[in-house]
Amino acid sequence: MEVRTIKVFTTVDNINLHTQVVDMSMTYGQQFGPTYLDGADVTKIKPHNSHEGKTFYVLPNDDTLRVEAFEYYHTTDPSFLGRYMSALNHTKKWKYPQVNGLTSIKWADNNCYLATALLTLQQIELKFNPPALQDAYYRARAGEAANFCALILAYCNKTVGELGDVRETMSYLFQHANLDSCKRVLNVVCKTCGQQQTTLKGVEAVMYMGTLSYEQFKKGVQIPCTCGKQATKYLVQQESPFVMMSAPPAQYELKHGTFTCASEYTGNYQCGHYKHITSKETLYCIDGALLTKSSEYKGPITDVFYKENSYTTTIK
């Protein structure tokens, strides 16, 4: 009895394709271990004539594949690729409408935090270190965002349907971005203890939790000093293409032309909904596939993004 075979390709990165001759009487799992086709788990399936010449994702289970996976995804987590594939199996079914010149995501599976993050990423200057993220990001900007969303979920250790947080998501993504040249110098002034300067680099240099107003941050924000008295913390120097200011959701007025974009969060910790506000020729609110415009805006804002380049204080 002759062994019926077909020729397929296996890959971990969709760049390096490895030619395989597979036995049609055995499952993919018996031949390769966990195997995925377009995100779908085909591990328990036997090869079919229609699979001839198709590319299958496999887990990096030998040295060659491990090197290829690390170079593309910059992670050695053995569960990463499987999590990416199972997320992709959902995100490829989502709709990605162009809204006001940006790629958004039609609401499904509690994905409003991903839509808000995706919209924000198209408006701030950011370059990702893992080629996987950078490639998928370019495709997302062009309207094909399924891979990018699935990668975000995998890097953030999230599953489809789980509630997510924009600030946490951005923080994970910033860790995989090139923020080497970003720098922030802060000064804390206390009447009792004097003053202390701190220099922050990388992710810490672009994120701040405690106030939404970048102007206020430049002037000074009140913080408790270690001595128990009130101290003032203010920005001395900022070198970065953008800054992200966050605070627990509270009524906040966004003035046209003073910011790049913002995240609105309605609801409580267990259950809520994100919308995205962007400042173009007027203010726009993007909620999944829905767009509304207004000249002014007041609502429960939790993150505001500002364009920056270089700032030095005039406070002496």
Rank of each mutant, 00 (worst) to 15 (best):
E2G: 15
E2W: 13
V3P: 14
R4N: 14
R4H: 14
I6N: 06
K7D: 10
V8E: 04
F9D: 09
T10N: 11
T11A: 07
N14V: 03
N14L: 10
I15W: 06
N16A: 10
N16H: 10
N16T: 13
L17F: 12
H18M: 07
T19F: 09
T19S: 12
T19P: 14
D23S: 12
D23H: 14
D23L: 11
M24E: 12
M26K: 12
M26W: 09
T27C: 15
T27W: 15
T27R: 09
T27Y: 11
T27L: 09
Q30K: 14
Q31S: 11
F32G: 06
F32A: 02
F32C: 13
P34V: 12
P34A: 15
P34N: 08
T35L: 07
Y36R: 06
D38S: 10
G39K: 05
A40E: 14
A40W: 12
A40H: 13
D41H: 05
V42P: 09
T43E: 11
T43C: 13
K44W: 09
I45S: 13
I45G: 11
K46E: 13
K46N: 11
P47L: 05
N49G: 06
N49P: 12
N49Q: 15
N49K: 12
S50E: 14
S50V: 10
T55H: 11
V58L: 07
V58W: 04
V58N: 07
N61W: 08
D62L: 06
D62Y: 06
D62R: 07
T64S: 12
T64H: 12
T64N: 10
L65A: 10
L65C: 06
L65P: 03
V67T: 13
V67C: 14
V67L: 15
A69H: 15
A69R: 09
F70R: 06
Y73I: 06
H74P: 05
H74I: 09
T75W: 02
T76M: 14
T76A: 14
D77W: 06
D77T: 04
P78F: 10
S79M: 11
L81A: 12
L81E: 07
L81N: 15
G82K: 15
R83H: 04
Y84M: 09
M85E: 02
A87I: 00
A87P: 14
A87N: 09
A87S: 10
L88H: 06
K92R: 11
K93A: 07
K93N: 12
K93C: 14
W94V: 08
W94G: 05
W94E: 06
K95R: 05
K95C: 11
K95A: 10
Y96W: 01
Q98C: 14
Q98W: 13
L102H: 04
T103V: 13
T103W: 04
S104C: 08
S104Y: 06
I105Y: 03
W107F: 06
A108F: 08
D109H: 11
N111K: 06
Y113A: 02
L114Y: 06
L114T: 04
A117P: 00
L118Y: 12
L118K: 08
L118D: 06
L119N: 06
L119M: 04
Q122K: 03
Q122A: 01
I124C: 00
L126Y: 06
L126F: 13
F128N: 04
N129K: 14
P131Y: 04
P131L: 05
P131C: 04
P131D: 00
P131W: 01
A132D: 03
A132I: 05
L133I: 00
D135M: 12
D135Q: 12
A136P: 03
Y137W: 05
R139F: 02
R141D: 05
R141F: 08
A142D: 13
A142C: 11
A142K: 14
A142I: 02
G143T: 03
G143K: 02
E144M: 04
A145P: 11
F148S: 03
A150F: 04
L151K: 01
L151P: 03
L151Q: 02
L151W: 06
L151F: 06
L153S: 13
Y155M: 00
Y155C: 06
Y155E: 04
C156G: 08
C156A: 04
C156N: 05
N157T: 01
N157Y: 14
K158F: 05
V160H: 07
V160D: 02
G161L: 10
G161D: 00
G161P: 01
G161S: 01
E162Q: 07
D165V: 04
R167M: 07
E168T: 15
E168H: 15
M170I: 07
M170Q: 00
S171D: 12
S171W: 15
L173N: 03
L173A: 00
F174R: 08
F174Y: 06
Q175P: 10
A177G: 02
A177K: 07
N178L: 04
L179V: 09
D180S: 12
S181R: 12
S181T: 13
C182M: 01
R184I: 00
R184C: 04
R184N: 03
V185Q: 08
L186T: 12
L186H: 05
V188S: 07
V189E: 12
V189C: 09
C190P: 03
C190G: 03
C190T: 05
C190Y: 06
K191N: 12
K191D: 13
C193T: 05
Q195T: 15
Q196G: 03
Q196L: 07
Q196M: 10
T198I: 15
L200G: 01
L200R: 08
L200Q: 11
G202P: 01
V203W: 14
E204H: 07
A205T: 02
A205D: 06
V206Q: 04
V206T: 04
M209F: 15
G210K: 01
T211I: 13
L212F: 00
S213N: 04
Y214A: 00
Y214N: 00
E215S: 07
E215H: 06
F217N: 02
K218C: 03
G220C: 02
G220D: 04
I223Y: 11
I223L: 09
I223K: 00
C225K: 01
T226H: 12
C227I: 01
G228Y: 03
K229G: 15
A231L: 02
A231F: 01
T232S: 07
T232W: 09
K233W: 06
K233P: 01
K233L: 15
Y234G: 03
L235V: 05
V236L: 07
Q237L: 11
Q237F: 13
Q238N: 02
Q238P: 02
P241Q: 08
P241F: 05
M244S: 01
M245P: 06
S246A: 01
P248E: 02
P248T: 07
A250E: 12
Q251S: 09
Q251F: 10
Y252F: 09
E253N: 10
E253R: 07
L254A: 02
L254V: 08
K255Y: 06
G257C: 01
G257T: 08
T258G: 09
F259N: 12
F259P: 05
T260A: 09
C261T: 01
C261Y: 01
C261Q: 02
A262E: 04
S263F: 07
S263M: 05
Y265R: 11
T266F: 08
T266E: 09
G267C: 15
N268A: 08
N268W: 10
Y269V: 15
Y269C: 15
Y269G: 15
H273R: 04
H273S: 01
Y274K: 02
H276A: 03
H276G: 08
I277V: 07
I277E: 06
I277D: 03
T278I: 08
T278C: 09
S279L: 07
S279P: 01
S279R: 02
S279A: 10
K280N: 09
E281H: 02
E281D: 13
E281R: 01
L283N: 07
L283T: 05
C285N: 12
C285H: 10
C285I: 15
I286G: 06
D287T: 00
G288I: 00
A289L: 03
L290F: 12
L291Y: 15
L291D: 09
L291M: 14
L291T: 15
T292Y: 09
S295V: 05
P300A: 07
P300D: 11
T302Y: 02
T302G: 01
D303Q: 01
D303L: 09
V304M: 07
V304K: 02
V304D: 08
K307Q: 11
E308K: 06
Y311W: 14
Y311G: 00
Y311H: 09
T312P: 11
T313P: 10
T314C: 00
I315K: 15
K316R: 15
K316V: 15
